[in-house]
């Protein structure tokens, strides 16, 4: 089932399906390893705010506006 990363919960792993982000930002995320099919672990999440994720061995803080535009499915 597809949903946005923002709807995910801490401690869960998701698989990236795609994103609806501006091109430059999308390419940045891809360069950081967040390509489609790649697993993402949500480490921590503020109730209505930013989250900390783990992608390909790296940790990133991700704002709500970005996380809510990344499509994922449960892995």
């Amino acid at each position: 089932m597809e949903k946005t990363l923002q709807e995910g919960s801490a401690g869960q792993v998701y698989r990236v399906q795609g994103s609806q982000l501006p091109l430059a930002l999308r390419r940045r995320l891809q360069a950081l390893g967040m390509t489609s099919g790649c697993p993402v672990l949500i480490l921590r999440k503020k109730p209505r705010g930013a989250m900390i994720i783990k992608v390909r061995g790296g940790r990133f803080a991700l704002g709500r506006a970005i996380a809510s535009r990344i499509l994922v499915e449960e892995a």
């Binding site: 940045r28 900390i52 790296g58 990133f60 803080a61 991700l62 704002g63």
Partner: peptide, 12 residues
Amino acid sequence: SGGSSLLIELPE
């Protein structure tokens, strides 16, 4: 303009 959103690496 797309808003501003956080994207930053958290190093160990």
